[in-house]
Computed example of a mutant assay.
Amino acid sequence: MTATAPPAQGVRHPWSGLPAPVRAAVEDILGAPVTEARSQSGGFSPGVAARLRLANGGRAFVKAVSAEVNADSPDLHRAEARVTASLPAHAPVPRLLGSYDDGTCVALVLEDIDGRQPRVPWDRTELDRVLAAVGDLARILTPAPAEVPAVAGLKARMFTGWRTLHAAGGDARLHPWAAGRLAALAELESRWAEAAAGDTLAHGDLRADNILLTRDRTVFVDWPHAVRAAPWFDLLVMLPCVAAQGGPDPDALFTAHPLGRDADPDAVTAVLAAVAGYFAEHALRPDPPGLPTLRAFQAAQGAAALTWLRQRF
């Protein structure tokens, strides 16, 4: 299969473009000057994302953004710093080495993971490895080992897509199947919060660009959207993106996975409806600053989620 989603990329800025006080603060955290910085293209965070080499031979990963680039991104970096710092040492995530925040610009200094993102279109061997790691992650993070918002609170404003579209009288750009069933989809979506409740610390935004494969580990990066949710929540959120990037049928993957096999089918359908509605409604919005491929990426995920929802409907 081929991928239908565009690359997950924000507009990157070079390490050298950061203000001198920010670069100096990062070097203070690391205890050595930066001698080399290689920008990384994957992921939707705008601003700086770079692998650093240091004068003392050390390495680190830095991500930094200012409110001038994107008004929402500094708060996401702050959330990621809080979550990453609170995760247990044995969790497969990068360690937070330090952070900088001057009120406008936020920088995170993280352990540099010597790995790569999974190939897309997805390779089945790599996908099976990642799916097994998602199950392991849910076991490690249940019960939730840190304070994060309940999914019903953090996603309350996001998972209203079908209800928003229904209240607006629909949209000519919607898939005909969805356009003819907005009332039913809105009602189904309204049940998502109770259906998604649980005590697993979920990543909340799993995609290929948030995963690194090393020789012997699968590492999950970028944690600003972490929530307390059902153990199968991450698996469900991830699979429409897998399908949009050339992966197999999401329903078959979900029902064959240990997390999916144990999930209540009605709860899964309600949460899937909310996810599909989120992507359908957000894909119709203008591109946000610094994220030129986001809406097309959401449209591809939304199409895959809707196809999956139609199977379950």
Rank of each mutant, 00 (worst) to 15 (best):
133 A>V: 07
145 P>C: 09
9 Q>P: 09
22 V>Q: 05
194 E>K: 15
138 A>F: 05
98 G>E: 07
257 H>R: 10
186 A>M: 11
207 R>V: 09
48 V>Q: 02
194 E>Y: 10
146 A>T: 07
44 F>C: 00
125 T>Y: 13
298 Q>T: 03
138 A>D: 04
242 V>N: 04
18 L>D: 00
235 L>E: 06
226 A>E: 00
41 S>V: 13
286 P>T: 08
195 A>I: 04
238 M>Q: 03
12 R>P: 05
308 W>D: 05
7 P>F: 02
206 L>E: 00
293 T>V: 10
110 L>I: 09
58 G>F: 10
293 T>P: 07
60 A>S: 11
29 I>D: 01
182 L>E: 00
293 T>Y: 14
29 I>K: 06
125 T>E: 15
113 I>D: 04
312 R>S: 09
257 H>E: 14
126 E>Q: 13
90 H>T: 13
172 A>W: 14
287 D>R: 11
112 D>H: 14
55 A>H: 13
78 R>S: 06
194 E>Q: 15
292 P>R: 06
81 A>H: 07
260 G>V: 05
50 A>T: 04
197 A>L: 05
285 R>K: 15
261 R>G: 13
283 A>F: 03
85 A>D: 10
163 R>F: 09
7 P>A: 03
195 A>W: 00
230 A>E: 02
2 T>F: 15
62 V>W: 05
2 T>W: 15
48 V>H: 04
192 W>C: 02
219 V>P: 00
18 L>P: 00
47 G>W: 02
17 G>P: 01
114 D>Y: 11
23 R>F: 06
215 R>E: 15
138 A>G: 07
158 M>P: 06
141 L>D: 02
154 L>V: 12
278 Y>W: 11
139 R>Y: 13
76 L>I: 01
231 P>M: 03
28 D>K: 14
192 W>Q: 02
82 R>Q: 14
235 L>N: 06
166 H>E: 15
73 S>W: 01
305 A>C: 08
275 V>S: 06
40 Q>M: 14
268 V>I: 14
44 F>W: 06
117 Q>V: 10
192 W>S: 02
199 D>C: 12
291 L>R: 07
35 T>G: 05
50 A>V: 05
105 C>Y: 05
246 G>Y: 05
109 V>D: 01
189 E>M: 04
275 V>E: 11
151 V>E: 00
215 R>F: 10
268 V>H: 08
6 P>H: 12
296 A>H: 11
103 G>S: 08
311 Q>H: 15
6 P>E: 08
261 R>D: 13
214 T>R: 08
206 L>Q: 00
174 L>V: 07
166 H>N: 14
54 L>K: 08
206 L>G: 00
133 A>S: 12
192 W>K: 03
49 A>H: 03
123 D>G: 12
10 G>Y: 01
222 D>C: 01
159 F>Y: 15
180 G>W: 07
294 L>V: 12
157 R>K: 15
257 H>L: 13
6 P>M: 09
81 A>M: 10
274 A>H: 08
